[in-house]
């Protein structure tokens, strides 16, 4: 079956069963995400790739491993921006967005670690090695786990939102230091660091770029989509909670 065929089926799976029509003007990017990811998966596994020693067919992991980090960075950046917005405006809605963006970003980061670990197993011969870039990525996850523990240990909503926003700013800055600056200063096995060539050097015929750039966009959009769904769910839960408590107030009064 051809690519458009898949997309049409996917479209009806998601939007076809509901009575309401999808608002294309508002939700075109979701459709774009679906189309790009189908393109990525199909061409990523079947398309031509340059034959390289050691890398062999694992080079296709480029379409999955690298975009995960792009997705994580985007989502964590959204989280920080909404944290700052919350500090400025003191609106709980922004805190919910910051929280859900961080959740989704960390999930993508974990996927990035797993795909990277798999790739390391088949190219470097080990699941994990003590490398600046790898450790930096793992510690970034630790920092964000600490962020969730911080959120969990404050009961007052306003206070929790403020503390979390402050911590997430620190966390984001340290993440930049850890995965962008430190690996470039020291020896690293990871491509693009420590004097190693990045993938742009391997791909002389630019075959991979045709899949890689759409893959990055597709995965980032999927991450934003998941975040969007989570935020809507969290806002609904919040509304329900508020209704329930106000209903209880009325019951208490009478």
């Amino acid at each position: 079956m051809s690519l458009p065929g898949f997309s049409v089926i996917y479209y009806f799976l998601i939007f076809g069963r509901t009575k309401t029509r999808m608002n294309i003007q508002k939700n075109w990017w979701k459709l774009l995400a679906a189309v790009l990811l189908f393109y990525t998966v199909i061409l990523g596994f079947l398309g031509p790739v340059p034959a390289r020693e050691i890398l062999n067919e694992t080079i296709r992991n480029l379409y999955f491993h690298v975009p995960m980090w792009f997705g994580m960075m985007t989502l964590l950046a959204i989280s920080v921006v909404y944290g700052i917005k919350h500090l400025n405006k003191n609106e709980m809605r922004y805190d919910i967005i910051a929280r859900e963006a961080a959740h989704t970003g960390v999930a993508m980061g974990i996927l990035g670690l797993i795909t990277g670990s798999l790739w390391a197993r088949y190219t470097w011969g080990t699941w994990w090695t003590s490398d600046t870039k790898l450790n930096g990525a793992a510690i970034t996850m630790l920092i964000y786990f600490a962020y969730f523990i911080l959120r969990g240990s404050v009961e007052d909503e306003q206070k929790r939102a403020r503390l979390a926003a402050v911590y997430s700013l620190f966390a984001f800055v340290m993440m930049i230091v850890f995965i962008m600056i430190l690996p470039r200063m020291e020896d690293s096995l990871h491509p693009g660091n420590g004097g190693n060539p990045g993938f742009s050097k391997y791909d002389l015929s630019s075959q991979m770029r045709l899949v890689f750039y759409p893959a990055v966009l597709g995965w980032v959009l999927l991450g934003v989509w998941i975040m969007n769904v989570r935020i809507r769910l969290a806002l609904l839960e919040e509304q329900m909670h508020n209704k329930e408590s106000s209903w209880n107030d009325i019951l208490d009064k009478h």
Binding site: L150, S153, V154, M174
Partner: peptide, 17 residues
């Protein structure tokens, strides 16, 4: 110091940073 379990949190928050 603003949270409930401040001593654990102090280590958890600051070590990775």
């Amino acid at each position: 110091s603003r949270t409930n379990n401040s001593f654990t949190l102090m280590a958890v928050l600051s070590f990775p940073l």
